[in-house]
């Protein structure tokens, strides 16, 4: 079955069964608390890390976090927590 059709089928199943998308498609899940704390689940590692810029690899593409005094509070196999004054979040 082509990849595109399989994706559409999975999307319909998730919609009918009301399943969380990040579980079904294994897509990243980002949770922000104000502009001070960001949790990223299902990440693919750190691409670039600086005090004012953090680039995190995702399944498809990357997310760039910009701000001041950024720090990775914890990084594990699938989950990462970022703290600092976050000013911008950009997907590419």
């Amino acid at each position: 079955m082509p990849e595109r059709r399989r994706g559409r089928l999975g999307e319909r199943v998730a919609e009918v069964l009301e399943l969380p998308r990040e579980v079904v498609f294994h897509v990243p899940r980002l949770v922000m608390v104000g502009n001070l704390h960001l949790t990223i689940e299902n990440h693919r590692g750190v691409v670039e890390f600086g005090r004012d810029r953090l680039v995190v690899g995702l399944g498809e593409g990357q997310v760039t976090v910009e701000g001041e005094d950024l720090a990775i509070v914890r990084i594990g196999r699938e989950e990462m927590a970022v703290a600092g004054r976050i000013s911008c979040l950009r997907f590419s």
Partner: peptide, 26 residues
């Protein structure tokens, strides 16, 4: 590339805490 070390450690199940970049070091 210290980021590469961080990624390898995370992938091997070695959690790291309080990571900060300080002059080309982490």
């Amino acid at each position: 590339a210290p980021e590469r070390f961080v990624n390898l450690a995370a992938r091997r199940g070695i959690p790291l805490w309080q990571l900060r970049e300080e002059g080309h070091c982490i």
